[in-house]
Amino acid sequence: MKKLLWVVMLLVAFAFIFPIVMMFFTSFKAEGEVLNPASVVPKLWTSENYRNVLEWSEEAPFGRWLLNSVFVSSSVTLLVLTLSSMAAFAITRLKVKGGGAFLGAVVFSMMVPGQLFLVPVYFILSKLHWLDTPAALIVPATAGGFGVFMLSQFMRAVPSAVEEAALIDGCSPAQVFINVTLPLCAPALATLGVLTFIGSWNDYVSPLVYMDSVRNYTLPVGIAMYQASYYTEYGRTLATSVLASIPLLIVFLVFQKQIVESMASSGLKD
């Protein structure tokens, strides 16, 4: 019985990664072999698809999309970590008046469904003349309340005696924040950083709505557009997909524990 269950779970787990394995193998197949599902592993390995993708072209500048994605996701991650930790520090450690009420408003805002923001944020970005610039993908992404909520919870759970002593001894709040609070919160910051990076890297709807020029796209919209124009050339589109996913696979392999555990605890928190 135990053995049978183990085999079933193995099959289920295999079914989940099979499409990913298939994507990887197919991207190394020559054009003729791509359309033959009977061969899973390429009979003849070729890097032709990858060379086609990486050739810089005006219609599909893959390298440019990659740079845009790296720049946008890194900026979003850095800004979210900075702004959220500063805000959580002000609320839980410096205990600003009205901080609790502000946190309540932030948590309440997390209930408003994201689709409501599509049209008005587009309108605000157009007034700021930020449409079709990286700012449109970076700045609005820092407004979400999850980071402030999560870091405030974390800071409340760890004792603040050291920080209070340091403040009374005459350290400036900025010194305490940088030298005591941030190192203390390192595990929570790592988790928040990884989740923010993945979310930003995978965001498809924002660049679709706020970006206009092909060279300003990030990878998700770029590859979706690429797929629309090279519809049947699956070798190429799957090679693009593999390239776009490699940075995330690396992040996942390195931070698997943090990612899976933060997901797991999201249902248990309350």
Partner: peptide
């Protein structure tokens, strides 16, 4: 868990 880390664009192509 792994499929969840792919962007929807890649998922849909696949």
């Amino acid at each position: 868990f792994l499929p969840g880390i792919f962007t929807i664009a890649v998922t849909a192509i696949l």
